[in-house]
Design a protein around this nucleic acid. Structure first.
Lengths: 241, 241
DNA sequence: CGTCCCGTTGAAGTCTGTCAACATCCGTGG
DNA sequence: CCACGGATGTTGACAGACTTCAACGGGACG
């Protein structure tokens, strides 16, 4: 039985911009169904178009690109509230793949309806543009981290981002948050080798900054973490589709 | 005397999607003026909002982020047809700065009008979303190049992208294209040191692949360049604002 | 003619990748 | 029940790609 947009567990969170009554009704009509995905499910495929767009209701996943030589670049970690498939929706082709890492539930939208959305609902169109800009912003930050920072700081940056987002999504409990990815996933996201990633993680743990074991991230010294990461801990509100 | 959209020199290029008569008229009204910028002019500033949005008519520039430690990540090379300021337009805050590298001419739009655009013209709103998706796509590719490739291939990748875009913009002459940036700019874009960038450029030159001197890029062996870069030479059409 | 920016080249040092071995956990099948 | 393989995490040793430091040349400009 699909979740009503009205009762969406994400909608009330301060991370997300508020909905007008009108927008809420419109999204309810825009939504065509709900999908459950098991770990390993391919939701979207690089280079292909997709008949469906998604909003993540729960669970986590990975966005990644495969290169010709077989190496993998993780371009994002998918968390609740993320809108997936915009590239396919407007360009007709995904630049990356998206895969479920945990069990996920997703709101499903019809790609064909997106054009109707732009015609019928300027506020929602604006929200889509807003989401695209948020994504661009994030990728710029990621590029800066991967391009300019040493491994220790890259990892701290990733952890700070994770934890911040987990808090915004209501997943954090005190100073811990679920982090169901592998060290290989993180390494592929930061342009590091698995071995070196492991060693720098160990160093962050020894330094009493943060530890990540058995799928749980624990931040022991938030100030130090943000400092190493070069981050502020501001909450940037974003739209929810 | 500002250029009429009807006579826009970019509009006819195959790189850009076609305008309907209606869209053309609307853009003419949306455009509030034209701006000339000299090299070094700051068009947009990281962390700030901007009263204006731009479309590049001619000239080139740089998008970059400054990090706390003073290092710089170049997140894009600005070329004619690029739409600047979307982040400020929809999020109220730029994630990067934009600076002119050559003399530039820019179409100027009013930030306040963007909301009116979304209300009044769904096709143009869709075009904005499309542009944002193109940018996201590019940043994903850049992240993959910076994260996964060795220096030699990174540089080949950047050159292939440059040349491809220069051709699409009508700037290329036979196998050459103007490239007014410095080696430091390229190094900051690829996450490499200036010295190493210089040495790998010399190697590409020695290998007869491509050379870049006095602001001009010459592609001596396109097939080899694309091969090293891991790129296809496909033209992805994009909207023009 | 001096200064500044940009490009070029050599040498030395280090961060990070590769190779290799081992521990743990888990599901599968004998 | 236990053996086995596969996936993940951990650690040490070594190699190498890349950075840093340093010096020099050429062109633009005041």
């Amino acid at each position: 039985m699909p979740t009503k947009c009205e009762k969406c567990p994400l909608r009330g969170l301060p991370l997300f911009l508020e909905f007008s009554r009108d927008e809420l009704d419109y999204m309810q009509r825009f939504k065509t169904g709900e999908m459950i995905a098991e770990p390993g499910t391919h939701l979207l495929s690089q280079g292909e178009k997709s008949p469906q767009l998604f909003t993540v209701l729960s669970g986590m996943g990975l966005k990644y690109k495969m290169l010709k030589d077989g190496s993998r670049q993780v371009v994002g970690f998918v968390m609740p509230g993320d809108f997936l498939g915009l590239q396919a929706g407007v360009m007709g082709k995904m630049g990356h793949s998206v895969e479920a890492v945990t069990d996920m539930t997703l709101c499903v939208f019809n790609r064909a309806a997106i054009w109707e959305l732009f015609s019928a609902h300027p506020e929602r169109s604006f929200a889509i543009a807003h989401l695209a800009a948020v994504e661009e912003h994030f990728l710029g930050d990621a590029l800066a981290a991967v391009g300019q920072r040493p491994a220790y700081e890259k990892i701290a940056w990733a952890m700070a981002r994770f934890f911040n987002r987990a808090q915004g999504t209501g997943l954090a409990v005190k100073n811990t948050a679920p982090l169901p990815f592998t060290q290989q996933d993180l390494a592929d996201g930061l342009g590091l080798s698995l071995v070196h990633t492991n060693k720098q993680l160990a160093k962050l743990r020894r330094d009493g900054v943060a530890s990540w074991q058995k799928g749980t991230l624990t931040v022991h010294n938030r100030k130090a973490l943000l400092d190493i990461a070069g981050e502020e801990s501001e909450v940037e509100c974003r739209p929810l589709m």
